[in-house]
Design a protein around this nucleic acid. Structure first.
Length: 260
DNA sequence: CTCCATGTTTAGAA
DNA sequence: CTTCTAAACATGGA
């Protein structure tokens, strides 16, 4: 489920399994995911080079190769990182594999192929150029208010707009709206400043909790909406019923009795 | 067969 | 300019 927590967990795993390792071979296995780069460029930039650090902004993960630049990964709907061995078969749907000199390897697996693989000399500059909003775990209260104020559309649509704020997706967005007691389709001009503050706190709590539980849906609290994302399910917070609707073109699960 | 899915972009309408 | 909808992308699971 590649939203901010999933990408953060992937970043932490890459930090421990790939940083400090030297790339022996780069295998681009699905060229269609390359975005503004080529297998030649990736091999030239990463081959024989030690990975030095990781970074993340919203749903974008980046791995640094010293001063040369950053490998950028976007997971789309189904992307994930898998550790492996260079002498073993790569996992099914591996789009990119980095084999390290010690025999280990890191695979970027993506069955649905909606993500992207890029190269950028300056990751922070890339974030700027793309016009991504601030990371949801970094944004300050007053900035978050400014981002949501002055709009009339549904609050969920704005939360999921990566150019407004980066990292919120449909599942954890619904979760935080549920926790804050706000309807996903509520027009933003009907949301008070205090409610915006509460929304920010709910988002931070939901995202941090998800990260603490390694973004594993099975491990999320029973009191959450996530295990009940089904039309007609019992609401975990009241005697009501969870409903599925569409907001901003995305399936949305919420409780009409708990949220208004 | 049908419907749905964690994301993003684009075209067109209002 | 803002906002919304539908469609497209490609694939897999229920």
């Amino acid at each position: 489920m590649p939203e901010l927590p999933d990408v953060e967990i992937a970043r932490r795993r890459a930090e421990s399994s790939a940083v400090g390792h030297t790339v022996a071979h780069v295998h681009v296995r699905d060229e269609s995911l390359l975005d503004g780069t080529s297998r030649q460029q990736l091999s030239a930039q990463l081959g024989g080079v030690e990975l030095t650090e990781t970074d993340r902004h919203g749903k974008v993960l980046a791995l640094a190769a010293g001063d040369r630049g950053w490998l950028r990964l976007h997971f789309g709907m189904t992307g994930r990182l898998v550790d492996g061995r260079a002498d073993a078969d790569p996992p099914e749907h591996a789009a990119l594999s980095l084999d390290f000199e010690d025999g280990s390897s890191l695979h970027f697996v993506n069955s649905r192929r909606l993500g992207s693989i890029g190269w950028t000399e300056d990751f922070r500059g890339f974030v700027q150029e793309e016009g991504l909003g601030p990371d949801m775990l970094e944004v300050e209260r007053d900035d978050f208010r400014r981002i949501l104020e002055g709009h009339r559309g549904a609050i969920k649509s704005r939360l999921l707009d990566q150019h407004a704020v980066a990292g919120v997706g449909s599942v954890y967005g619904d979760e935080a709206l549920f926790a804050a007691g706000i309807r996903p389709d509520r027009p933003l001009d009907e949301v008070s400043g205090d409610e915006i503050d509460a929304m920010r706190r709910s988002l931070r709590h939901v995202l941090r909790t998800a990260i603490d539980r390694e973004a594993d849906p099975e491990r999320m609290p029973e009191s959450w909406l996530l295990p009940r994302r089904e039309d007609g399910a019992d609401c975990p917070g009241c005697d009501g019923t969870i409903r599925r609707t569409t907001v901003g073109g995305r399936s949305t699960y919420w409780c009409p009795d708990c949220q208004d």
